[in-house]
Simulated assay, not measured.
Amino acid sequence: MLAACDSPRPSAAAVRLPPVHAGFDYQIGGAYPPPPGVVVVTRDHTASPAASLYNICYVNAFQAQPDAQREWPADLLLRDADGRVVMDPDWNEALLDISTAAKRERVAVKVNNWIDECSDKGFNAIEPDNYDSYTRSNNLLTADDAKAFITSLAGHAHARGLAIGQKNTVELADSRSRTNLDFAVAEECAEHDECGRYASAFDDHVVVIEYTDPGMRKACSTFGSRLSIVRRDRDVSTPDDKNYVRKTCQSVLQKAVIRAFPLYGWGIGG
């Protein structure tokens, strides 16, 4: 059994969801003062929430951070038939072994501790990353394993008064009623024509991160009046980094108007 929580156990309906179509910033690469207009912000669980905003707390729930692999017991790292740790090649992260109920309980102990920290700090919601790790597991994990694990995390998050989001994994969006997830965090959903499926499954409670200008323009043109959308650089860097990028649908629209009417300078207030 997972460790019980002594505090009251609110239902999923009792937690506060992120507002729909709100100014959003994705700060998992480092916290900084939210730009004007931001209402919802996501930060890593090691950071503090932003004052007076809706704060989502990022935790890497299904994989080990590259510098944290040794913090996990060796048998909780997913291994292939030759005993080699199965890695996410894009981010150099070891997959966690959630293939059995017993291992899911043990992985959840650490993840739930992070959830508790997020709650204690005053965050409003949890973003458990890499729900889709089973798709990179060489068939060693299944979608049912992932759904079972995230359902247990959802129960713990709700017990601490936190909403919990589905990170990507659009193919499991229709399982929302079973997994008890409250909202979606969708990377590049416009790029992959997936925003509509998230919007439908989560009643527009969707925060979108696009990493390319074409993807951002498409997101804004199709869902800019419904979802919370931001364009960030892939490293999700801070403003003091030369590679920092942050754009909103408003700024994208203004540039589009200026391009359409260059002689008149229409755009901001035009």
Rank of each mutant, 00 (worst) to 15 (best):
S99E: 02
S99P: 07
T100W: 02
A101R: 15
K103D: 08
K103Y: 11
V107S: 02
V109S: 11
V109Y: 01
I115H: 03
C118R: 00
S119D: 09
S119C: 11
K121S: 07
G122L: 04
A125V: 07
D129G: 09
N130I: 05
Y131T: 04
L141C: 09
L141V: 04
A143Q: 05
A143L: 10
D144L: 10
D145I: 02
D145Y: 04
A146H: 08
A146E: 09
A148M: 10
F149L: 04
A154F: 12
H156N: 14
R160P: 00
G161Y: 07
A163C: 11
G165M: 03
E171Q: 15
L172M: 13
A173Y: 00
V185D: 02
E187L: 14
E188L: 08
C189T: 00
C189M: 03
A190M: 01
A190C: 10
H192D: 13
C195W: 05
G196K: 01
R197W: 02
A199G: 06
S200G: 04
V206Q: 00
V207D: 00
V208H: 04
V208K: 01
Y211S: 08
P214F: 09
R217K: 14
R217D: 10
K218D: 12
S221W: 02
G224F: 00
S225I: 04
I229V: 13
I229C: 11
R232Y: 03
V236T: 02
S237C: 03
S237I: 06
T238C: 01
P239Q: 03
P239K: 02
D240H: 09
D240K: 08
D240S: 15
D241T: 09
